[in-house]
Design a protein around this nucleic acid. Structure first.
Length: 592
RNA sequence: GCGCCCGUAGCUCAGCCGGAUAGAGCACUAGACUUCGAAUCUAGGGGCCGGGAGUUCGAAUCUCUCCGGGCGCGCCA
């Protein structure tokens, strides 16, 4: 149920009638005009730009956008939801809706609760979507930047699911390549340490993190002194495997602390060591069979120092055929695959599982990698599957306005887990989402635990708690009245006449539109900002009741009015809870 | 040098598939609690939307260009 969609349909029908009379071309693209809340409330409840959009096409039957607007207005007179319509400004049509329209939405919020705002199946072209997010290397604890991608990806997955798509949440484990060998060597040092062997300084290039001590102890417990003094080739594989398992356990525990659960953990190593043979080789062969892989030389990048540049022939993927700036190597000089080659095979695996849309959530430092990956997906799927990459910008950690120094030394590294433990999962999630994903984010550890309006997490949760508090109080004041949603739906909502009340009703009616647009543009932050608006409206109205007691929700002398107001409060609470739910943030009953 | 992202109030940021007088929070100033949670609210000042050009009836929004910042640029992931 979405008022904006209903009115859009009404206007479209009106345009169709005008077209039927020959004064507009047939087959107008109705996606071109919008129905939206006007910026200025004096312009009514809803506004549309339809007359301006089609003014050119309407000539010579209508000389101006205003003329066409007037015609559309005249055809809307009988529409049941519309109380008034007028042409305004350069050709806008301002619409006022009958209160019943907003009442209908309010009742829907009560009736549907957490499902309110879900787009109707007819509106959503349901898709099988894969969202790959986090995918942090299993070489250490996650940092705050990973956390942002994790929360964004998770909320996006929630949002797309809410919008009716079939979503798979996936994590790609980079458990192949040089980095996990470094991990293994670092863990081996801790293994020696656990057996009482002095390790001295951790050599440059190995991971110094103390979190590896536990891995070393585990290895010592499992293998005893078996690997001591042995050459690397004899222990590397087992140490590496054990270290990766330990790191993934740690990462999964951190994700769990963020209420994030992936359905699929896909191992990079399994691409070459799995049952199905070397999938990377197969993917490359497939591309080669299409003439997209060749042996050649790349030009040396300009304007950059490359002291160890060696001009040599290599195996290249012709990504320039799909808009990339350069063709990209698939093999390293030692004969192993590049990361890109593995990633091609991985994305092929996802394509083969039947997704039409792949969404990858990456850190901004991988921005240069987007085009080549899209090229690969386009090539492998023959254009059937789209790869959408969402880049998350950096997170700047602050404490009460002061930047926190993020030293490379392991000792004073602030992990994601540290932040969750300090400020709580709700604050982390909400703050990460209270910003566009491609804008840098300042995260102030001091501010997000403040219980004040400075802190948007608190502000929104508090609004929900306050609304629920009113309902609890109502049960004391009106113990004999049934305050369940089915009963509240019967309330006489015409009694809600105050501007604070109507403002809240209009915001409730906006929620389905916000959800739909957030899903359409992959922007969960729109939900967060909407919730902040809704919370603000509720706080404002509730405070008005301090000065004007007749506006309070609970009025013992006017039971019918009180029940109507409780219906409103319950609906606001339901919408707040629904939106917070999509963001993965809790909606507390009280804030104590 | 090339590619991508960003530049909006003192600060942090919304708004951007063109639309009416550019918004919010913080900070600042002045106010509002005997009763539903003042953990809140109300009001005020504060802006060449980085500069310039173009497209358009109309540009913060689209295009080009310049300036400023971030990220990336073969065999790291």
């Amino acid at each position: 149920m979405n008022l904006y969609v209903e009115v859009h349909d009404l206007i479209a029908a009106s345009l169709r009638r005008i077209a039927a009379s020959g004064r507009l071309p047939k087959n107008l693209d109705f996606g071109r005009f919008v129905v939206e809340p006007p910026r200025d409330p004096a312009h009514g409840d809803l506004a549309t730009n339809a007359a301006m959009v089609y003014a050119k096409a309407a000539r010579p039957f209508f000389s101006s956008p205003r003329d066409l607007a007037a015609e559309i207005v005249s055809t809307l007179a009988n529409a049941p939801t519309i109380a008034g319509a007028e042409a305004a400004g350069p050709g806008f049509i301002n619409l006022r809706l009958r209160p019943a329209a907003f009442h209908r939405l309010l009742r829907a919020a009560l009736e549907q609760g957490p499902d309110f705002g879900r787009p109707s199946p007819a509106r959503t072209a349901q898709m099988k979507i894969n969202v790959e997010y986090v995918s942090a290397n299993p070489t250490g604890p996650m940092h705050v930047g990973h956390g942002r991608g994790a929360v964004f990806g998770d909320a996006l997955a929630n949002l797309l699911e809410f919008a009716g798509h079939r979503v798979t949440r996936e994590y790609y484990i980079n458990d192949a390549g040089a980095q996990v060998d470094v991990l293994a060597r670092s863990a081996y040092l801790r293994y020696k340490e656990a057996l009482g062997e002095g390790t001295g300084e951790i050599p440059e290039g190995l991971y110094p993190g103390v979190y590896l001590k536990r891995v070393g102890q585990k290895l010592a417990a499992e293998f005893g002194r078996e690997f001591l003094g042995r050459p690397e080739a004899e222990w590397l594989e087992e140490v590496r495997a054990a270290a990766i398992v330990a790191m993934m356990e740690m990462i999964r525990a951190d994700l769990s602390a963020l209420n994030i659960e992936h359905e699929i953990f896909f191992s990079e190593r399994s691409l070459t060591c799995g049952k199905e043979g070397d999938l990377v080789a197969k993917a490359i062969a497939e591309l080669r069979s299409r003439g997209l892989v060749y042996e050649g030389r790349l030009p040396r990048p300009k304007g950059q120092l490359m002291e160890d540049w060696e001009d040599r022939e290599q195996t290249l993927f012709r990504s320039t055929a799909f808009g990339d700036d350069s063709d990209r190597p698939l093999m390293k000089s030692d004969g192993s695959y590049t990361y890109f080659a593995s990633d091609i095979a991985y994305h092929k695996a996802k394509i083969d599982r039947g997704y039409l849309l792949l969404i990858d959530v990456w850190g901004a430092d991988h921005g240069g990698y987007v085009k080549r990956m899209q090229a690969a997906v386009e090539a492998l799927s023959e254009g059937r599957t789209t790869l959408d990459v969402k880049l998350c910008q950096l997170v700047q950690l602050l404490r009460c306005g002061e930047p926190l120094k993020m030293s490379k030394r392991a000792g004073d590294f602030i992990t994601l887990r540290d932040v969750i433990d300090e400020v709580g999962v709700d604050a982390v999630r909400f703050m990460m989402l209270f910003r566009k994903n491609d804008a840098p984010l300042e995260f102030d550890l001091g501010r997000v635990i403040e219980q004040s309006k400075d802190n948007p997490v608190f502000y929104v949760q508090y609004a929900h708690a306050r609304a629920r508090s009113v309902l609890r109080r109502a049960r004391e004041v009106l113990p004999e009245v049934d305050l369940s949603p089915p009963f509240l739906m019967e309330a006489d909502l015409n009694l809600l006449q105050d501007q604070g009340e109507t403002a809240l009703m209009k915001l409730i009616a906006q929620y389905p539109r916000v959800v739909e647009q957030a899903a359409q543009y992959d922007e969960p932050h729109r939900i967060a900002f909407y919730l902040h608006d809704l919370a603000s409206s509720l706080h404002a109205h509730q405070t008005r009741g301090k000065e004007r007691p007749q506006l309070r929700f609970l009025n013992e002398e006017r039971r019918d009015l009180t029940i109507a107001r409780l219906a409103l409060v319950a609906a606001v609470a339901a919408v707040l809870a629904s939106g917070l739910g999509i963001l993965g943030v809790s909606a507390p009953e009280e804030m104590r």
